[in-house]
Design a protein around this nucleic acid. Structure first.
Lengths: 330, 330
DNA sequence: TACTTGACTGTAAACGATTACAGTTAATCG
DNA sequence: CGATTAACTGTAATCGTTTACAGTCAAGTA
């Protein structure tokens, strides 16, 4: 047996389908009509079919959130922030994650044309001209979290992660450290490249010497890769501080250092990035640069809702300031 | 300007809409027809409208995943598992999380009648007769991850978490511990209750004495609550082992114990649950019962896809065996 | 050649909502 | 009391697909 439709309700209530629809959407109706419709709805357990509604009004009531990998705690926080905001709205959250290649992102973006979402929040880990082009051609509101590619005119939530590196490095210098290493993620990712650029720039400004070997890249942003990467770090006995690509990587580094009996922060101070819950759970607790992923998610979601409500406003760019949270690893 | 529709494509290709539809859905067509349709699709950048298709074929190509809070790493792993499986399929993943009350779950379940999802994977943290009833009335395939309420006939992926407690307690007894504490989450949740029941039962079987004060409940499953709860644990100086509701809570406990200068595992051995990445990142590394959240997610997703393909098969129940991963905290 | 067959193709009716428009009531006013 | 108006209601078109059914056309068969 099929679910009740608006016609069954109309029949049951002895009114027209239009009246049912109007009652449901809050338009004026005679009290008598309204109560009969409501009674019929309750009797039949009617729920409007979302596909039919979506087809007619051209709104899916869905928002798509797209990022690289839900394994990364920063994205989890972001998802939480977005979820919290959407939860207060009529929108459902569709997750488009787990894709790892540029090709998959492109495929994903192309399929947005099917209209299953009213808006897109995307935080691309890779930059690619094709991705930029596809985003700019999208007919729906888009919020990009991360570095906005040049020429792309969409709402943007951006955190100055090179400022994050600066906070970390300055803090380390104040603590008397002068030989700072960077344990980074892959350079072909946006965060990886920004951290590396920021690092280079900041060290120069601080008049700290810098050689290429100070920077090392792990294969990805996991603690395991970080552990493996640092175990082949050439300058391990020369540095007195280490900035890591994120907290997971920092935790991997801490493990390695502890196994080698290298004192943290005595011999080497360690700074993480993201300020996840992990930072206060490892020993020593980890100084970390908070990139406010959860609030970025909230900001992005609010920006998107605002843009949906007001499609013609000029695009906004929100810059979020990272915060350094000092703990005992420095 | 509106997106191209199947009619525009038909017009452009000089064929009927039916032919376009057939080409798109892989039905036989003359090579000439097929190539003209494909060319027109490419020319116009046509993407079929998913709402229209959903309305007609009664399939949304979406799967809904519903759980309590994406803040919990176990659910994140589960989401990952589900996401990985769905990624290989045509289905999109809709996340319905962040709800905290029974009322919200109910509301969520009621709205499933709108047909925006072809299937539901749900892992309810609370048990409630109303929830059970609503699930059983759902017209779509459902997989429940967790304890199956009596009388509910849906596919189920279940992990015997009391067996998990048993593994932990037996291991601790073998290590010569006899006074084991339980740092649990709230008792009004399914996992909380199961852990408490399991704990009671196992200790009895192991002929270890048990008093009520051995079990303590934190306000929720976070490390912070765990920290606060253990700081008012009455028997802290008497126990020689502690089983925690999950790894986060264990990490909170470890932090407290380390601040008090209580040696782990010398004075108190600590066991976590979930075996998240965190377990190998804290110091000492944490012995933990792996509840295989990610594979449960995969299993559930596969079960759901199988059920969608084959709606009349009898419901299956998959029981997953927890594994104890021994590390240095015991 | 005429007829059957098979392989495609096109027409038009759904799917279940929303909404413009016209029609119906009831209320108000002169 | 009849006319005007306001408030509500119903009819039917529409959104963009899929698909049953009937039609076309060429090839194969007698």
């Amino acid at each position: 047996m099929r679910s009740p439709t608006i016609s069954s309700v109309a029949l049951h209530a002895g009114v027209s389908v239009a009246s049912v629809s109007r009652v449901m959407n809050g338009f004026a109706a005679r009290p008598e009509t309204e109560s009969r419709v409501r009674a019929a709805i309750a009797d039949l357990g009617y729920q409007p079919n979302s596909a039919a509604r979506a087809l007619k009004v051209r709104e899916s009531d869905q928002i798509c959130l797209s990022f690289a990998d839900i394994g990364n705690p920063a994205y989890v926080s972001m998802t939480r922030g977005v979820g919290r905001v959407l939860h207060e709205s009529k929108y459902r959250l569709v997750l488009a994650s787990s894709f790892s290649t540029v090709g998959e992102i492109i495929q994903q973006l192309e399929s947005m044309g099917r209209g299953y979402a009213d808006g897109l929040i995307i935080s691309p880990i890779y930059s690619d001209p094709k991705i930029t082009e596809l985003i700019s051609q999208l007919k729906m509101p888009v919020v990009l979290i991360g570095t906005l590619p040049t020429g792309l005119d969409v709402d943007n939530v951006h955190i100055d992660s090179s400022l994050g590196i600066k906070l970390a490095a300055t803090h380390l210098k104040e603590r008397g450290r002068s030989k700072i290493g960077l344990l980074n993620g892959p350079l072909n990712t946006n965060p990886g490249r920004r951290r590396s650029d920021g690092f280079r720039k900041v060290l120069k400004n601080l008049r700290l010497e810098i050689v290429e070997e100070q920077m090392i890249q792990a294969d990805d942003f996991t603690s395991q890769s970080a552990y493996e990467a640092i175990s082949r770090y050439p300058l391990i006995s020369e540095i007195d501080a280490l900035i890591c690509g994120n907290d997971l990587m920092a935790a991997g580094a801490l493990r390695f250092l502890s196994e080698l009996g290298i004192d943290v922060p005595g011999k080497i101070a360690v700074v993480g990035i993201d300020n996840t819950e992990l930072a206060s759970l490892v020993k020593p607790t980890l100084t970390s640069v908070d990139l406010l992923a959860e609030s970025r998610g909230e900001l992005a979601a609010n920006l998107l809702l605002d843009r949906i409500a007001n499609p013609k406003r000029a695009s906004k760019k929100i810059v979020v300031q990272p915060k350094l949270i000092v703990r005992s690893s420095t």
